[in-house]
Design a binder for these strands. Sequence first.
RNA 1: GCGCCAGUAGCUCAGUCGGAUAGAGCGUCGGUCUACGAAACCGAAGGUCACAGGUUCGAAUCCUGUCUGGCGCGCCA
Length: 553
Amino acid sequence: MPDASPITPLAHALAREASQVAGGADAVAALGPPANPEFGDLATNVAMTLAKAARRSPRDIADDLAARIIQAEGLGEYVESAQVAGPGFINLRLSPRWFAHAARAIVEAGDAYGRGQADPAERVLIEFVSANPTGPPHVGHARQAAYGDGVARILEYAGHHVTREFYVNDWGRQMELFGASVAARYGQLLGRDTPVPEDGYQGDYVRDIAQRMRDELGDSYADRLDPPDPEVLALFAARGKELMLATMTQELERFRVRFDDFFSETTLHEGGAVARGLEALVASGDAYEKDGALWFRTTDYGDEKDRVLRRSDGSTTYLAADVAYHLHKAGRGDDRLLDVLGADHHGYIARLRAVIAAGGFDPDMLEVPIVQLVSLTEGGEAKRMSKRAGTLVTLGELIDDIGVDAARFFLVQRSHETAFDLDLDVARAEGNENPVYYVQYAHARIAGILAQDPTAPGDAGTPAHLDPSERALLLALCQWPEVVREAEHRRSPHRVAAYLMDLARDFHGFYHRCRVVGEAPEVVAFRLDLLRATRSVIATGLGLIGVEAPDRM
RNA sequence: GCGCCAGUAGCUCAGUCGGAUAGAGCGUCGGUCUACGAAACCGAAGGUCACAGGUUCGAAUCCUGUCUGGCGCGCCA
C-alpha cells in the first residue's frame, strides 16, 4: 500500500492488541500526534473508547495495553516507550529506525503517496461557475471556480473519475437584452444614436464585443438598428454570446480551470427536452395545472412550496429548463452529481433534489455544495462592488492584480461555507506577509538544496538521535493521506491549503535547526529522504489546489 | 415570520466521527544571517470559543433556547 501513511500499520497492530485487552471487542485505534509534542511522537485514546464495553476504567485498560505494546509484533520493535497519561491516553515514543523507514517509504511512493484511496471509486459529474454569458466572470465566480476545480482535482487524485461541466444560461429575456445592448453599442460605433436599453447591460465589455462585431460585420446592419429588427437582435445575441463565452473560457483557463463540457440551455429548449421533461412530470403526477400555470409538486420532496414550471402565458420558467438539464445529467451514467452553487442560490437545493427524485433517481446522488460570498478589502476598507456602477472586480482583473497562485490559494484557503474577506494588500504582497509564498518558498528551498546534489551511501544506516524538528516534520508528512481523505469526503480543498501551511511551518523549523550537506552519512541519508518526501507532498498538495510549486522564486 | 451559513486573539480565519495546556496568517513588541535561500527562524503580548441551559469521565465540537450578522424565501434568471 504505497498510498497509505506509515502510521497505518502501527494503528492496525495497536487495534489488534487493544481488542485483545478489551476481551475481543472491536477496536478502532486512532493513532495521531499528541496535544503536546513533549508527550511523545504518537498518542492514542483507544483505552478510553473501550472503557464502556470492557467495563473497566480507562487507566486500567491503558496500563495493560501499554505493557503489551512494547512487545507486540509489528509495533514493539519500533516503540521505545509507551506511557499512560491523563485520563487514559497512551503516549508512544518511536525509534529513529521507524522514522528512517517511514521517510524511505514516502519517498519511494512518490506522487502515489496519498493517492487513490477512494472507496468506492465513483464517476462524478461536477458542475460549477455556470456564470451567465452576459458578462465577464467576477470575484464570486472566481471563488466558485477555485473551489470547484479544487474539489475536482482532489476527487481525481482520490481515484474518482471526474467530469467538469459549465452550464450556459443562453436562453430567455436576459439574452435578448444582451443582444439589444450589443446592437446598441454597435450602432454607436457607427455614429448612430442608439441607446442601450434602460435595463440592459451597461458595462464597457459590451463595447468591446460590439467593436469585434463591427470588425466582423462592417456597417452592413447600420440601417436595421433603429429600431432593431428581430433578426438583427437574434444575430447580435447569438454572436455576442459566443464572444462572451470565449472570453470567459480564456480567463478561466488562465486561472487553470478547464471544463470538459459547456452545456447550452438553448439546446434543451430547441431539442424538445424541456417539453419532454414537463410531460414526464405530468405523467408521473408530479406536476399539475392551477390558475392556468403548470406547477411542480416539489413539496412532496421536502420543498417549502410548489414551483411554477410553465406560466399562464405559456412560457416556461428557468426551473423547467433545470428539470430537463438535471434529468439529462442524472441519466448519463454518473454515480454522483455535484452542483456547486453560490450562497444566493441555496434556496434551489430542495427543488433540484425534487427533480432527481421525481425522475426516479436516488436523490442522494445529488450534492449541492454552497460557496458563500467573498468580498474584497483594500487599505483596511471594504471594496464596494456593484454590477450597476461597473465597479465589479472581474476574474481577469483579480489575476492581473495579485497573480493566479495567490488568487487560487486565498480563495481556497477558507472553508467554502464561510463568507470571508480577501485582503488585497496581503494577497498582493510579494514578501513574507503572503501565505502562499510561505508554502512555495519551502518547496523552492528544498529544490535549492537538492540542486547541490548531496549524496549518501545506500547502506548508511540510521541516525542514533533525532532532532525534535525532524520528528515533527516526518509526523506531519504522515498526516497527508488522512488530509486527502478528509478533503475528499468533505469536499473541502481548504483542508489541503491549511495542511500545506502546517507542513511548510514544520519544514522551515527543521531547516533552521538541521543541516543536510556535510553531516555524517546516516544523517545525510535520512535528511535527504525527509527533503524529497516533503518536496513531493508540497508539490502534490499545491497541484490539488491549482497552485504552482516553483524550484526558484 | 420561515430556511441555509456563520459568530473562536486587534484583523482575516483553521479547529466538523467529543479528548490532555484552543491554533495559524496578518498586525504589535523583542531577538537571530562569516555554513544548504532571512520570502525564513526563535521569543513575548493578546481568548468569558456570542449568551444561557443540557448530555458525560471529558464540550469550541453534540442537543435545546436566546441574541447578532450574511444570504435566500417571484408565474425573475
